[in-house]
């Protein structure tokens, strides 16, 4: 089935939703969710870049000629990006835990001792 450019639209929407969440939500956990949404959008974008309609997975020692395959590089990139994303999300959430312990709140507008 040909879905055309739909994945690109979804990726763009995910990035935009993520940005909206990051900019306008107050809860630090929701901010982290926003970042994760942006990240998912970017990952989807990368995978879509490498997709070829009716392509097969490129796992061959000697690739047969005249066989349409999806690009392997963007998948490798996405995998790396997912791993990095896991680390950043974990770090952000653990900072959120400590912030809640010290400030007693997760409201981004109240966590502003460093200003001016």
């Amino acid at each position: 089935m040909n879905i055309g450019n739909l994945p690109f639209v979804v990726a763009a929407l995910l990035v935009l939703f993520g940005l909206y969440t990051f900019l306008f939500k107050r809860n630090l956990i929701k901010l982290v969710i926003g970042i994760t949404l942006i990240e998912t959008g970017v990952n989807l974008f990368l995978v879509t870049l490498g997709y070829r309609t009716d392509g097969i997975s490129p796992i061959y020692t000697f690739a047969p000629e005249a066989q349409k395959m999806v690009l392997p590089t963007p998948q490798a990139l996405t995998l790396t990006s997912i791993v990095i994303g896991l680390a950043t999300t974990a770090l952000l959430l653990s900072f959120a835990v400590f912030i809640h312990r010290h400030y007693g709140t997760l409201d981004v507008r109240k966590v502003k001792e460093l200003k001016g």
């Binding site: 970042i35 990006s81 952000l92 912030i99 001792e113």
Partner: peptide, 29 residues
Amino acid sequence: KQSQEAGFKVMAMYTLSGLFVLLAIGLLY
């Protein structure tokens, strides 16, 4: 207290910039 706040802010901003850089790399690729 403040260093936790700074850590969260820095990580969030760094991640944002990193993701946009990745998006740009994807566009070029």
